[in-house]
Write a protein that binds this DNA or RNA. Structure first.
Lengths: 128, 128
DNA sequence: GTAGACTCTCACATCAATGTCAGAGTCAAC
DNA sequence: GTTGACTCTGACATTGATGTGAGAGTCTAC
């Protein structure tokens, strides 16, 4: 498919799709005309890129990490230890962030519940 | 303490500490001279800010979330229904954010595990 | 073949998180 | 009361992820 379709199907602007290619995250082949040609798997790749970007990774890191995430969870390429080091640190940060957010969530829960019931339980079970 | 000490103790530049204040994340009181005066709890706050920023949240979001991470679980103030409405929306946002981060975390996990073991289990137990 | 939609490259703009610098005021120790 | 370290505000620069627009080439359906 061409860039317009990929853009529509992923919700990511064409500008960004070109940018991701420039950063080495996507590698569409080119028609003789120069038009980019993407395949179905690129949809999943774009989705992954968005997830990792949203989690605070940079395109540089993602470029190193993406080859480790094969089409369907087959991460074929091994990564250098430096990158692994970085990933470890970032994972820890994400863990901390999740923990913070969960704390915030519990707190909100307590407030909301308390507002509804006129008092706040210390430990609220809020699992959806 | 003044800004220099907080900067040294948190490792965050004075420039950023002022920026965080500008964004509503910190609220030091001011001496008559205009000097900012921080207290001990601001160290923890700055640490939280760094964690949340590193995980991809914006200062705007953090500004809304931070008050929910109170010093010691004191959320006594009763709230109007409009505020409750807001809290509900916010809780949803936090839930989405947590879900996104968990997705990213699983992704990182797969990569790290795959790199370490040369093959990847579908569900990796990576709790430290 | 041609019109309209699509794509190309390239360049400039923006936004958030940062850094850096300048000039002026403040604090503390001597 | 003076000096050196600290702080203030304010302005400009940068970097990474984005948006936007221009001008030229390409595709497709008629």
């Amino acid at each position: 498919m061409r860039i317009g379709e990929l853009s529509r199907r992923t919700g990511v602007s064409e500008r960004l799709l070109r940018y991701y290619e420039e950063q080495g995250l996507l590698h569409p082949y080119r028609r003789p005309s120069g038009y980019r040609e993407y395949d179905e798997s690129d949809i999943a790749t774009v989705s992954r890129i968005r997830t990792l970007l949203a989690a605070g990774l940079t395109t540089a890191i993602i470029a190193e990490v993406l080859p480790c995430l094969g089409e369907d969870e087959k991460h074929l390429a091994p990564i250098c230890s430096e990158t692994a080091e970085h990933l470890h640190r970032h994972r820890t940060q994400i863990d901390e962030c999740i923990a913070e957010l969960q704390t915030a969530r519990r707190m909100l829960d307590a407030i909301i519940t308390g507002a509804a019931r006129e008092h706040a339980p210390t430990t609220a079970d809020t699992t959806p």
